[in-house]
Structure formats: structure tokens, C-alpha cells
Design a binder for these strands. Structure first.
Length: 276
DNA sequence: ATGGCTGGTTTTACCAGA
């Protein structure tokens, strides 16, 4: 296993893992995240490119689904251990949107929160219900002594500062007060929005839609988030957005977003006996 | 108010994304 002084954890909505595999591999080689949470695989379990990623040195766990959704966690040079692959609270929910693992001394939660458009409507109702279930579970996770990182596509623009211009998005599910209230509730629990913590006064975007040359005009939204519990927030060193990946030809509409945490000791050395 | 673009499937037409 590679020696690590810091741990980097990234989240990347790939928008189709098979069509994005070349970009994903280019990015993994260039940035070498220790842990990568992926969303929108749009692939059944059998279609997941496990061996391609293993050839790059990454062990993967994933939850697939035909056509839509799908999440995965990649760990460089080490296996993760699965904690759960279903968000608790609704046995009838069959969407592949959640994966929770232990890896490299961290608890890592990878989420693909429902988009919720159009709103109002059943999809928006589903979004809010999913969000409520997530918040209930997040409350339990926050209490862990282990550092916890909840990373993913939250499909929420937390404030008007997190979008180039809210005007044409006012009716969108991503900006609704009901969505924002639930995100704010997480922060109120104590979860630290790592990117906002690091850049309190900069406009940071993680998503640029494919329309109207939004990328070229840097008309973006910040919707991919990494939330840290206290133990993780204490170790926060840096973070950022790998915008260059959004600039590649035929890109995902999201860019990888990441944090670096001071390394978590994996095992304590036996205490030295005092020399008295 | 609409549509602009993209990936995946049900493929030359659709759904969903955000």
C-alpha cells in the first residue's frame, strides 16, 4: 500500500461510467485520489469496468442499476469494507443512490441525491423524502468518533452565491427553499461543507450544463459537496475542483471535487514505556 | 414559455438529467 501523509477524497458525477471511462482513467492517473466517489454510473452491476479500474490500482465497490443512477467508491491500493448499500428508512426505494464504506481509516458515504425536477410533482416529493431519510441517517453518522466524509451529487445549490445567476433557475428543484432547508439542516447538525469552509468568499462551481455554452461562459452551479463530521473537519487541509476534466472533449457535465485530510493513523504503535 | 445538449435504451424516438 502506498504511504500517505494526506488522504484525498474526491466526488465525481461521471454521467455514464462506460462512456466516461477514458476520462475517468485520465483523471485518476493525473490526480491520484486515494478515494473517489462516483455517481450516475448508468450501468447494471455486470457492466461496471472493474478490471479496467483494478489495472489502474483501484479497488471498487458499486451499486448499479439499468439506465440511471448508480454509485461507486474507488480506493487506491486497498479494499474498502462495505457498511451498507441502501439508505435506511424505505424498503420500497429501489434507486441505486447510496453506498457507505469504511476505507483507509475513514467512513465514506457516497450519495446521488435525487434531482427532483420537475417541481412540484412526484419527483420533487421523492427528493424531499429521500433528503429527510438521509438527514436522519446523517445525524447518527455525525456522532461517530471516526472521521466521516459524506460526498456526492447533492443536487442542491445551497445559496444564491453558489450559482452564476439564479434568475433562470428559480423554478428548478435545485434552488427550492425546501431543498435548501434540508441542506442547511445538515450544516446545523455540525457537518462542515468543506469547499465553502476553505473558500468562504469565492464562487466555486462543480457543474456546468451542456446548454448555451455555459462551460465556455463559466456559468456554473455548486452542487457536488463533501460534508465532514468533526473528526474529519479537524483534519481538513485543502480542497478544490478539477475543472480541467470538464474542459476535456465530450466531458461529464460535472467536474471532480475533492478534499485532502491529514492522514489518519491506521494503527496505533504500542505506547513506549516511560523511562522513569 | 421554450429549448438548447448528452447518455442510455425501448435506438432514428423516447426518457431523464440539472
Amino acid at each position: 500500500m502506498p504511504r500517505r501523509s494526506t488522504l484525498s477524497i474526491a466526488t465525481f458525477n461521471v454521467n455514464g461510467i462506460r462512456s466516461r471511462l477514458p476520462h475517468l482513467i485520465t483523471w485518476l492517473r493525473e490526480e491520484k485520489p486515494d478515494i473517489a466517489c462516483l455517481q450516475e454510473l448508468k450501468s447494471v452491476d455486470q457492466g461496471f469496468p472493474r478490471s479496467d479500474l483494478e489495472a489502474e490500482g483501484y479497488h471498487a465497490r458499486w451499486v448499479g442499476q439499468a439506465s440511471w443512477n448508480g454509485v461507486a467508491v474507488l480506493v487506491r491500493g486497498e479494499e474498502s469494507s462495505e457498511v451498507r448499500r441502501v439508505l435506511p428508512g424505505d424498503p420500497s426505494d429501489s434507486h441505486a443512490r447510496y453506498l457507505e464504506v469504511d476505507a483507509l481509516g475513514l467512513r465514506v458515504v457516497c450519495i446521488y441525491l435525487p434531482n427532483g425536477n420537475p417541481q412540484p410533482g412526484p419527483k420533487f416529493d421523492y427528493k424531499l423524502k429521500w433528503f429527510d431519510r438521509f438527514n436522519r441517517h446523517a445525524k447518527k453518522l455525525f456522532a461517530l468518533d471516526t472521521p466521516v466524509v459524506m460526498a456526492g451529487d447533492y443536487n442542491v445549490v445551497p445559496t444564491d452565491f453558489d450559482i452564476y445567476n439564479p434568475r433562470s433557475w428559480l423554478k428548478d428543484a435545485l434552488l427550492q427553499p425546501e431543498s435548501r432547508e434540508r441542506y442547511a439542516k445538515l450544516l446545523k447538525m455540525g457537518w462542515v461543507d468543506a469547499i465553502r469552509e476553505l473558500y468562504p468568499e469565492e464562487q466555486i462551481y462543480t457543474f456546468w450544463d451542456y446548454f448555451r455554452q455555459h462551460w465556455e461562459r463559466d456559468a456554473g452551479l455548486r452542487i457536488d459537496h463533501l460534508l465532514l463530521n468533526e473528526a474529519a473537519a479537524k483534519r481538513l487541509k485543502e480542497g478544490g475542483v478539477d475543472r480541467w476534466v470538464r474542459g476535456l472533449p465530450k466531458p461529464s457535465d460535472h467536474a471532480p471535487t475533492w478534499v485532502k485530510l491529514k492522514h489518519v493513523a491506521m494503527a496505533k504503535k504500542p505506547a513506549k514505556k516511560s523511562a522513569k
